[in-house]
Amino acid sequence: MTDTRNDSLLWSAQAFIWAEADMLDRRDYEAWLALWRDDGFYTLPIGDTQDFDNALNLCHDDAHMRRERIKRFQQGFSISSAPPARTIRTLSRFVIEATEGDDVRVRCAEHLIEDKFGRQRIWAADLTYTLTVTPDGFKIRHKVARLLNSDGMLNSFSYLF
């Protein structure tokens, strides 16, 4: 692509998403919560569904549920998250899918390795972001993390994708 506007959009979206990935690996959840629009949704769907509201998802969090989820991770009463598995993730293969008004839709690939009890597990997901351009930078309107085997036999997760 030689379109420099698109190149710089791709670059800034990538930088934003990488920064988010870094927050998640470091479990800097307060910073992560601040990345969102109030009406944003964080969704881990099952299978190829697009109608998230009317389907069973692994999670489909509005602002309230995101805060509750983070509280659960942080308060120390949840045995699976105290301590949680540690994670290292890489994100790549970024594509700008569409731009519409102030919104940009970006997708990318995520590889994540978790470690707990001396055992490592590996996960792959397609991430799709709808980001809104604001004076303070991007805000997440919707993030969909679709695991490669989302409709298969999984394990429990003590972290976010």
């Binding site: 949840s78 045995i79 699976s80 999984l154 429990s156």
Partner: peptide, 10 residues
């Protein structure tokens, strides 16, 4: 896998 209950059971 991402519920507020099952992961603690598991």
């Amino acid at each position: 896998p991402m519920g507020f209950g099952s992961p603690d059971d598991a």
